[in-house]
């Protein structure tokens, strides 16, 4: 089971990295979203996998049966999902603003903070 997930995660990361290597900020953004999903799956797999039984203690029992899924990675992923969603939202709006302010989504043309061919600093004293 972990094997399938490991390979699947490899595909997620490969796709995410490929998208993030793009020049276009929108594609980078898509890459980041996929990257986040890859990380979540990775955390999920890290806690080992079990099928179907959610970690909810059935009525009448005091503890969780051993067959249930590992709740800790789920809790960690919940935290991570919300965080990565927040960042995704922020970046999305930032990209949008970037497009508005800078007039481009091509990162090669975003040279306002670090302009091309700046003059040399003064060489005198």
């Amino acid at each position: 089971m972990e094997t399938v997930f490991s390979v699947l995660i490899g595909f997620f990361f490969a796709a995410a990295v490929y998208l993030m290597l793009s020049k276009h900020s929108v594609r980078i953004l898509l890459g980041i979203a996929i990257f986040g999903n890859g990380v979540n799956l990775l955390l999920f797999t890290a806690g080992r996998l079990t099928r179907e039984v959610p970690p909810i203690i059935p009525a009448g029992m005091d503890t969780l049966p051993a067959t249930a899924a590992n709740p800790l990675p789920q809790a960690l992923i919940l935290t991570a999902i919300v965080i990565s969603f927040s960042f995704f939202a922020f970046l999305l709006v930032l990209t949008y603003r970037g497009y508005q302010e800078l007039g481009t989504d091509n990162t090669d043309e975003m040279r306002f903070a670090e302009p091309k061919d700046e003059p040399l600093p003064p060489l005198g004293y």
Binding site: T3, G10, F11, F13, A14
Partner: peptide, 17 residues
């Protein structure tokens, strides 16, 4: 690069689990 990263993650996760 992307494939290398993907393979790296896969191998490491396999090893770790």
């Amino acid at each position: 690069i992307a494939i290398a990263c993907g393979i790296g993650f896969t191998l490491f996760l396999l090893k770790a689990t």
